[in-house]
Design a protein around this nucleic acid. Structure first.
Lengths: 352, 352
DNA sequence: TCGCATTGCTAATCCGATTTAGCAAACCTG
DNA sequence: CAGGTTTGCTAAATCGGATTAGCAATGCGA
């Protein structure tokens, strides 16, 4: 027997004015439309006493704006890593008084279609299309009908949609900089990608861009990577295999692992060969996966800024929403979010 | 310049009928209201051609039902563990064609109030109030206005709200059963809670109930735990300390760690003392935290069924929604979800 | 052939707000 | 003091559906 919600009509009746007047006052347009102080006060008082809150569904129907955005991802909501992305989006949304719908497509285009329809049907003000790991995606058609942003993804074909992605190239440079600053110049090996252009997952933006950053930064210091080992998948066991294979032929001074799981395998291989991190071999990695802080010694790694990515996506989305439709806007801009390094214990000067 | 959405009026016009008729046909009530086959076909055809989809905002305003539920948690969305809870809820919701709002209160009652208001304002059909770890919570007032379910939480005061929680008592029994089946009877120690009633976080449902299950199951086998060490917090370092302290005085045959992080510390302490898992000491734990599968040897643990919890919460919520208001319903039922054991490599027969 | 029931459909209202158009009273102005 | 402005507020339309009440045409029995 829930008491009926208080409506604008109730407020108007108590205040002894019309619904129009009440609406005007409560939307702050009372002044500009010359509502008297007296009436204004009465309406405000009534609204306060009745604890009036506008029904957003109704407002949505009338104005078309629901103060609601959609966060549609392949599977982001469930992975711890990327859960932070949601958190960032959530907080940025809350600051704007906006609610967040979430949906997971599980990579299924049909599901994605249904989900986007469902969001449309609910008149969301905007859509964030997120990917669990950075990659290029085919933008579903019909995305142009509503403001939208790609998160952790780049459009496969040119698109007007803006994108928010981690700055992987700069991350590669950062990893190198950390090693350089520690004094490393020789015996720097890569685990995860080979030095040839082959053997690199082309869909993986991370692989390509991290490598580019690494090459550039090393090049600027007049250095080349001493070698690299590709891995079929960036999982610990492959990191283990690749590092073992490497250690059978040489003694590296530093390892740049392309992600933390590879680093976990690398640690193990180094241990098998009786090599200590970081005294014998420094290790730097990417992602800042939770295990990085569990590892011993704690892993120095260039972090994927998930939280910040989520926030930025919302910021950019609201720029889109606020943009004048007529505004001639360039093709979807790519916003790159810096990847901060988490300096821990796995890098030390060579021979320290 | 997005083309205006197709409305029911458009369909009606194309089909050459009134909006009423179109509505009747499309809501499946055409038959019962004697709409002719001919007209029915015309409406269906028009709707199909125009790709008509009803505007849920409008339906929401008229009927009061938005096919939308809220998932409000303290911080569940961001922790990997509990992210699975969302996933479960998400999938169960999708199967019903329902969308999920998410919100995080960060444990702030004021934020929680605002969030619940915002959900009300959007006319959600129901609310799931979730906690990141199992505990008792004070049910915010105003929760009775809308169907709601407590997830991973029990009401501090008696409440009409149903609750969905993991079956921790049974989990305790399960842990014991695994050890018993492996042949353990002696030297079973507890890491995380002492044997006395003191030193146990009383808010932690897990601690109390797991211990109860353990005691019961051991008791039924005529056994008592050989000892136990409480920890100020269930973190690896305390698990390490507690286990070290234990090992200084005795040699356990099996450890029941109250969660996986404690087990991580215990592993380390055992290693420090030159004891091997599981040959020298079997270890069983709770939670199935991601690290459990990373540990070596892989940790046998009784899993928190996050995914299933999320699903159940939605199921129970829809029972609430479907329940006739007049239906005299008992006080909020507590639904206990079984905690399955993940048998891995850390338990073996004693002396194996 | 009149009266009543049935068939098949539609007009009008409602949900709860916003917004447009407009009205009555007070106020100027020449 | 007629005619135009300004002031201060409200009636009515609108958003897109669901729902209630009702109407015209046909069928049927007497």
């Amino acid at each position: 027997m829930s008491p009926r919600r208080v409506t604008l009509a109730d407020v108007a009746k108590i205040a002894g004015v019309s619904r129009t007047t009440a609406s005007l006052v409560l939307s702050g347009r009372g002044r500009e439309l010359r509502i008297s102080q007296d009436v204004e006060q009465r309406v405000l008082k009534a609204a306060d006493e009745l604890q009036y809150r506008p029904n957003i569904v109704s407002v949505g129907l009338r104005t078309g704006t629901t103060r609601t955005i959609a966060f549609v991802s392949d599977t982001v909501a469930t992975s711890r890593l990327a859960g932070d992305m949601i958190k960032g989006a959530l907080e940025a949304a809350r600051e704007r008084g906006v609610m967040l719908f979430i949906g997971e497509t599980e990579g299924d285009p049909e599901l994605e279609r249904l989900l986007l329809h469902a969001m449309h049907d609910r008149q969301v003000d905007g859509i964030i299309l997120a990917s669990m790991f950075t990659r290029t995606i085919r933008v579903p058609k019909g995305m142009a009908a509503i403001p939208a942003v790609l998160l952790n993804a780049l459009p496969k074909q040119p698109s007007i949609l803006p994108a928010v992605v981690p700055d992987e190239v700069e991350a590669g440079r950062t990893a190198v900089r950390v090693l350089l600053e520690a004094g490393h110049r020789d015996g720097i090996y890569l685990i995860g990608v080979g030095l040839g252009a082959r053997d690199m997952p082309p869909e993986s933006v991370a692989a390509v861009e991290r490598l580019r950053g690494i090459r550039e930064a090393l090049g600027e210091a007049g250095i080349k990577p001493a070698g690299g080992r590709s891995c079929p998948d960036w999982q610990p066991e492959y990191g283990l295999d690749a590092t073992r294979a490497l250690l059978e032929t040489t003694r590296p001074r530093a390892l740049i692992c392309f992600n933390d799981r590879l680093a976990l395998g690398a640690y193990q291989a180094l241990d098998d060969f009786g090599l200590k991190v970081p005294e014998d071999v420094s290790v730097i990695s990417f992602d800042d996966h939770p295990i990085a802080a569990w590892m011993r010694p704690k892993l120095t790694t260039v972090a994927l800024p998930h939280y910040e990515l989520g926030r930025r996506a919302v910021d950019v989305l609201f720029e889109e929403i606020g943009r004048d439709k007529a505004d001639p806007h360039p093709e979807g801009a790519v916003h790159r979010v810096p990847m901060p390094v988490r300096e821990r214990q796995s890098v030390t000067p060579p021979g320290a």
